[in-house]
Design a binder for these strands. Structure first.
Length: 855
RNA sequence: GCGCGCUUAGCUCAAUGGCUAGAGCAUCUCGUUUACACCGAGAGGGUUGGGGGUUCGAGUCCCUCAGCGCGCACCA
């Protein structure tokens, strides 16, 4: 039989335990023979970096649910993968080659850049995979996927072809968000808005053949080079007479009309707006409706185009200052005002966005043949998808309601190219290049989210594969709430379109992991916690626990070393508990089943009753997706009830069978949370012949619930507590055994041991004694020790007052007819029971006080 | 502007409308023992952000105010 060593060396053990799991083959659901299944396609991290706390917390949650379901007899598939990451990876890789080799992607050329970026991603993936394993995730690595794997990307590309055939996608000129640094179009959600203090410039626009002006206000004067109208609200009396007149656009000397449009806010600025359809989303709309010319004056490098006349070639900011100078010279600059407004920036590189008109591929989200928007809204509203937390359902519905066409083409090089070929006026859309000479493929690459949005079924080999039939729709999807729109919404949209099914039954959002002060972890702040460092320092189990403590779905959580440390302490406790059990009796073994006959003493009955209760509670809480509370309840049982009370008592009245039974259940209940240490202990105690990972989850059995034992044990604890309290408040040395006398049958040995007293049961000594007693007088003893009578009386008076207050409260409740008839039966019964209990306690207290006064 | 979330012990968080509002960390006191000092025992610490309401009963539900955080839209 193996021994349990003095200390748990998690650093040495964890890799070995993981290797043992992998070798067992049970990460692969094919090796589990059952009809029931549970599937969770894991979110693929971008294959360009390192595992961070966000990943770690997500994996901890996914693995807890996965292991729970596996122990509940299901074939569990946790399918891992990596995302090629599109823009983000390209930005990272470009920076890398610039720093390391001093080259740009243009110097490498498209083909070579793609190839090297692919190799880079592959290398990072391997590294990340080794990190993911250290968290302990029980994923089926034999099924691991990459968004660019041929089988995966083929299915995703087919979706595009299908959409094209069914007219859900189109290529067209629209105003889009352009990142001049990345050199690509972006979708609306890849743009972040930052408040910045800027200036609002008031510029005089002269009316043709008149001395009058209209003053317009703008934050971006450089765009005036492309103005094709001035717009006012038709209700605005100030400008009624100007509508239809002509303005001579300053600097360009071009004639443009004054138009009326109800979208103009009369309150803002002067109420008159310069309209630049080529460089502002709202102006673009107005331009469309009024059939205005779209004059592009800013190009894709954020420089002024030839349409900008003498400003051509200037950077937008240079152009802005030059234009302001020129206007001032002409006397057309009325004034400047400070204004705080939102500036759009690229989510990845933070460069200011230029709105441009550009020819891009779009998904029509409200197409005639199939409205992605409507179908997705319907599915969410149908209630067939459980969302944790439920409040995010509303957010999703609101977002979908406002959804605009989705720009899916990018001008970056990293990622799959559009399956579209051109030859002159001809266009071909299909998976393979068309036969014949002279076809040129569309240069655009896909928005990476178009690929990851199809992840639930591309990974399973849609449409005709064993895995797809068996595991789709999946049971669970877990992600950070920061990618709610990016990912969960897109998965719902695309999966519903392609497969006709909601891709998952449960959608669980994790919150953000923050530092102790509630700040985001960031490199610039230097407050980052590297999960791998923490695993080295405290072990994977401790990190997992700290990541799921205090969490609720979608709620941010704070993490800091002391928190992880306190869970490392718990892990040590679990180890020591097991060590004690093993050492307590050479016959000690883990026990799967027990019968009532095996429960000898009060404490046996109590601990088993509590165990059954906690088993039910933990199981229910995990099913409700409330893993934080489940863990909390289990920890309290393990540390407080089992270690601090039952084991201490076990040192006196051994019941090795009960000990083995409780430990067996505890190891199983803890396994989803702390898989490594529980597997290690289970292995030692079973001579490595059994694997905890696939052990059966404990089932709570009502027959062991024993309320009477629980109450009696509570009384015992209360009495011991009272004695300890007295020792502490009178500074009685811990070494000193307090003399006591009891004339009733009580759990003498236990109380003597736990409270360090010596209890005489015969020959009551003739000295003054403090009397202690509990409810129903199950336990009563007298302490033969000099005490401060006045102090004790004061203490008892306080107790009596509290009890009287409680009695009054409960009495008035029970006298209230509306309470008795209106409240649930159990509540009324509980109130009655409480009242009796308090009355009895009060009676005892009063008696004790009377006795005390006689001293 | 619209929407969402949060506010409970010094800190981090719990508490199906119903038991004297609880844990962990931190603090203070003490420490003999067949696992554990990464430990054990005990103690202190609360007007549940303010105000109002509904209810037999409110930390919990409603209204309102304040503070913090987030999302969306607008931003000429």
């Amino acid at each position: 039989m193996k021994e349990i060593s003095k200390q748990y060396d998690f650093k040495a053990k964890e890799p070995k335990i993981y290797a043992k799991w992998e070798k067992s083959g049970f990460f692969n659901p094919d090796n589990i023979k059952t009809e029931k299944r549970y599937s969770n396609i894991l979110p693929p991290p971008n294959a360009n970096g390192e595992l961070h706390l966000g990943h770690a917390s997500g994996y901890a949650v996914m693995d807890i649910f996965g292991r729970f379901e596996r122990m509940n007899g299901k074939k569990v598939l946790l399918l891992p993968g990596k995302d090629h990451g599109g823009i983000q990876t390209q930005v990272v890789f470009e920076r890398k080659i610039k720093e390391e080799r001093g080259v740009t992607r243009h110097e490498l050329g498209r083909e070579r850049f793609y190839k090297e970026c692919y190799e880079f991603s592959n290398g990072s993936s391997k590294y990340m995979r080794s990190q993911e394993k250290r968290i302990g995730i029980s994923a089926d690595w034999s099924r691991e996927k990459f968004t660019l794997d041929p089988d995966v990307s083929r299915i995703a590309l087919e979706t595009f072809v299908k959409m094209h055939r069914e007219e859900l996608v189109y290529k067209g000129n629209r105003i889009i968000n352009w990142c001049p640094r990345c050199g690509t179009a972006l979708s609306d959600i890849e743009v972040i808005h930052k408040e910045r203090e800027g200036k609002l410039y008031y510029i005089k626009y002269p009316i043709k053949d008149s001395k009058e002006f209209i003053i317009v206000a703008t934050t971006r004067p450089e765009t005036m080079l492309g103005d094709t109208a001035v717009a006012v609200n038709p209700k605005d009396k100030r400008y009624l007479s100007f509508i239809g007149q002509t303005i001579v656009l300053p600097l360009q000397e071009k004639e443009i009309p004054v138009i009326a449009d109800r979208r103009i806010d009369m309150e803002f600025g002067t109420g008159a707006v310069k309209v630049t359809p080529a460089h502002d989303p709202l102006d673009w709309q107005i331009g469309k409706d009024h059939k205005l010319e779209e004059v592009q004056v800013i190009d894709e490098k954020a420089q002024i185009t030839a349409n900008g006349g003498k400003y051509e070639g200037l950077d937008v900011l240079e152009a802005r200052s030059k234009i302001l100078l020129d206007l001032d010279e002409l006397g057309l600059l009325e004034k400047e005002e400070v204004l705080v407004n939102n500036v759009s920036a690229c989510e990845r590189c933070k460069t200011t966005i230029e709105p441009l008109i550009s020819k891009q591929w779009f998904i029509n989200v409200d197409a005639k043949k199939y409205s992605i928007k409507k179908k997705t809204l319907e599915a969410i509203k149908s209630g067939k998808l459980n969302i944790y937390p439920a409040s995010l359902k509303k957010v999703m519905i609101q977002w979908l309601g406002n959804l605009q066409d989705w720009c899916i083409s990018r001008q970056i090089w990293w990622g799959p190219q559009f399956p579209v070929w051109y030859k002159g006026e001809e266009i071909y859309v299909g998976l393979e290049a068309p036969k014949g000479e002279g076809w040129v493929q569309d240069e655009n690459t896909f928005d990476a989210w178009f690929f990851s949005g199809q992840w639930p079924y591309t990974t399973l080999g849609y449409p005709d594969s064993k895995d797809y039939d068996e595991f789709y729709p999946t049971d669970m999807m877990i992600m950070g709430k920061d990618i709610l729109f990016f990912w969960s919404a897109r998965m719902l949209m695309l999966s519903l379109y392609r497969t006709g099914k909601i891709p998952f039954k449960n959608l669980y959002f994790t919150g953000l992991v923050r530092d102790k002060d509630g700040h985001k972890f960031s490199k610039s702040r230097g407050n980052g916690i590297d999960p791998l460092d923490m695993i080295d320092k405290f072990g994977a189990d401790a990190l997992r626990l700290s990541l799921v403590m205090d969490i609720a779905p979608g709620q941010d959580t704070r993490l800091y070393e002391e928190k992880i440390e306190s869970f490392r302490n718990f892990i040590t406790k679990l180890w020591n508990i097991s060590k004690y059990c093993k050492q307590s009796d050479e016959k000690f073994v883990l026990v799967e089943k027990i019968s009532k006959k095996d429960l000898k003493s009060l404490s046996d009955k109590w601990i088993i009753s509590e165990l059954e209760g906690v088993t039910k509670k933990v199981t229910d809480l995990i099913k409700e997706k409330n893993i934080s509370l489940a863990q909390d309840a289990l920890r309290r049982f393990t540390w407080d009830s089992f270690a601090d009370w039952y084991i201490e008592i076990n040192k006196l009245e051994k019941n090795t069978k009960v000990l083995g039974y409780v430990l067996d259940k505890i190891l199983k209940l803890w396994h989803p949370f702390t898989p490594f240490i529980t597997e290690e202990i289970y292995g030692i105690l079973n001579n490595d012949e059994k694997l905890l990972m696939v052990a059966k989850w404990p089932k709570s059995e009502n027959k062991f619930i024993d309320k009477e034992a629980e109450n009696n044990f509570a009384d015992l604890r209360e009495l011991v507590g009272k004695i300890r309290n007295i020792r502490s408040s009178y500074h009685i040395d811990q070494a000193e055994q307090i003399e006591a006398f009891a004339d009733r049958r009580i759990e003498k040995d236990i109380i003597e041991r736990l409270a360090r007293v010596r209890i005489e049961t015969e020959g009551r000594p003739k000295i003054k004694m403090l009397q202690l007693s509990t409810r129903k007088r199950n336990f009563e003893l007298n302490i033969a020790k000099l005490i401060d009578v006045a102090k004790e009386i004061a203490f008892m008076d306080k107790e009596i007052k509290i009890l009287e207050g409680l009695i009054k409260k409960n009495e008035s409740m029970l006298k209230n007819k509306r309470f008795v008839s209106g409240a649930p039966e159990e509540v009324v019964a509980a109130a009655k029971a409480r009242l009796e209990e308090y009355e009895e306690k009060l009676k005892i207290q009063k008696e004790l006080e009377k006795n005390l006064r006689r001293l």
